[in-house]
Design a binder for these strands. Structure first.
Lengths: 335, 335
DNA sequence: TTGTAAGCGTTATCAT
DNA sequence: ATGATAACGCTTACAA
């Protein structure tokens, strides 16, 4: 039905082997011959059959992104960064949405991956979970985004430092009752959550500001969770004068809670988030900005680099890249 | 290196043909034989080679989603709906981000699609654009989401009706100077934009409310655009008392503009959006809700149904499904 | 019900 | 530099 490499070979008066070499830019092909083949191929509108090529070569030219969500700012932004690289590299992008690892999620069984992809990009998943470990054990090149693990390349921010920046900002403003809205109640293997909390604690300690156990609430990284968390903080005998929310979406929820109580963020209670969410500006939220799209880009670049390497040299330079964050001050924290 | 169908066949004492049939659930396999084969296969941890299977069968078990953006609420939510279906159906999901069709976008060249997918899901792209037309001409089953075209199955909302609902709501509140923040300046083939504007116009006309040409601004479906649009509306000699924003994100921008001017949405100027954005609640925005995730699900279901059909019967029932929208009233429109 | 064997369209090895 | 040709691992007539 469709044009095959044989048709092209015949039309160009060469063997299929030569066509294959010529079209893939391999060496040992006469310049003239190559040109002719390319011309003929284009004119015949020939496209290599991916299935055949994959079967014969053992490479798929495909990578998979495994992510808890699509429909949340961080994740979709990462995805966008990833795809910009893959589009350039002409690599196919397969996606799997696995759900909140803190609740219930279903990893793609390895059967959905084996033989379909050359590499894996895992977004913000606790790398110590059994399921994630299985992925790593698949033997494919892997890159983590927004999480890290021993012996696996990763890119993310320095969560401790980012939290320090946020907390220090509140301290500089003169606050002494600084609460945190954190992600999970119990520290899991998902390090960003606990790292951010650690940065907060360390900074308070360093500044000699007391840490009140009552000034900690869980927002589960969601808007609704942030709202609940803030509400409970407000209900305390001595409510905080400032809040560090470990994610912008939780900060949004907190802002909503404030409004519901007739309080104005920045005037009545200072609040700072962490993310650099698209809509932080809209809500006038001070936040520590992480370059999320770049995270996706960099991880994809790193993975592609791995793939281009001869299999032998691959595990060589496993590094955890930390990209810098920047504080953006807005109305939610005013002197 | 890896287990092949031959290994399984040998271990089960049958031919590869029988293994193939058994494992795919085809008829004409003895129950006992099938059971044995399944047992052996599982025990050997056998997984069919996708490349080989694709090459031999001509089917890829893959569909592609082509969308302008990942990192925007509507699009990522659609994607999530799509993937929930494909995960269930065990179909691979390939994604392409093509950029804003109103600005500049790069469709995946057909070479990136041919032979790689069995079907296409096209999200919110103007189907009369040459590039989109090319996709349709690819001969693959296609389903459109949030846009429609002659002879192509699609799912979306009734944009005219949704806009009517929004506008009528404002009229019911007693407003007589009702502006619109619309998407594009010029009607392109992207029907939702013009349909929403049409619904607005028709409703005003039906209610005998005059239509002021000054009460129309372009928000380009973005927050920033919406803010600019609202700002320009406010600058007019007789500013509107109510605004219909053709998307929630533009409404968000409008709200921001209001705040900047010291105006309170709902009290000083009524505003209603269209989308049912996650954060509409946060911003207390009245909006006409479309079931976006369902849109993705339904389109995926429809496409999968097509794929399961014998090739001959495919073009049969090309229908444009319109799903209902509902008005959610919040603080941005109070009596 | 099961087996045989001819593809499917490349890639890659080994000659030439 | 080019050509023959054996894989690659499965599906699917067709035969038995």
């Amino acid at each position: 039905m469709s044009i095959t490499i044989r048709d092209v070979a015949a039309a160009a008066g060469v063997s299929t082997a030569t066509v294959s070499r010529a079209l893939r830019g391999l060496p040992h092909v006469d310049a003239e011959t190559r040109e002719r083949i390319e011309r003929v191929a284009k004119q015949m509108d020939y496209v290599v059959s991916p299935s055949a090529s994959r079967l014969a070569s053992g490479r798929t030219g495909t990578i998979a992104v495994i992510t808890p969500f699509f429909a949340r700012w961080f994740f979709s932004t990462v995805l966008s960064g990833v795809e910009s690289v893959l589009q350039r590299e002409e690599i196919d992008l397969l996606v799997f949405e696995v759900g909140d690892p803190a609740v219930s999620y279903r990893m793609p069984p390895e059967q959905r991956l084996r033989g379909r992809v050359d590499g894996l990009l895992v977004v913000a998943l606790p790398s110590d979970e059994a399921e994630v470990a299985e992925l790593l054990a698949l033997g494919l090149p892997v890159s983590l985004i927004g999480a890290s693990a021993e012996g696996v390349p990763s890119v993310g921010i320095d969560d401790v430092a980012a939290a320090r920046t946020a907390t220090q900002h509140l301290i500089n403003l003169g606050h002494e009752r600084i609460a945190i809205i954190t992600g999970q109640p119990n520290p899991t293997g998902f390090t960003p959550a606990s790292d951010r909390e650690r940065g907060y604690r360390e900074t308070l300690a360093a500044a000699g500001v007391s840490l009140d156990a009552q000034h900690r609430a869980h927002g589960y990284f969601t808007v609704a969770g942030g709202e609940q968390a803030m509400t409970s903080l407000l209900a305390e005998p001595r409510p905080p004068t400032a809040v560090f929310a470990a994610s912008d979406e939780m900060a949004f929820g907190a802002i909503r809670a404030l409004r519901r109580h007739g309080l104005v963020p920045g005037r009545d209670i200072a609040i700072v988030g962490l993310d650099g969410h698209d809509l932080a500006d809209l809500l006038d939220l001070t936040t520590v900005v992480q370059p999320v799209r770049d995270l996706g880009r960099m991880a994809a670049d790193a993975l592609v680099a791995q793939l281009r390497l001869p299999v032998a040299d691959r595990g060589a330079a496993v590094k955890a890249t930390l990209v810098p964050t920047t504080l953006t001050v807005r109305g939610s924290t005013v002197p």
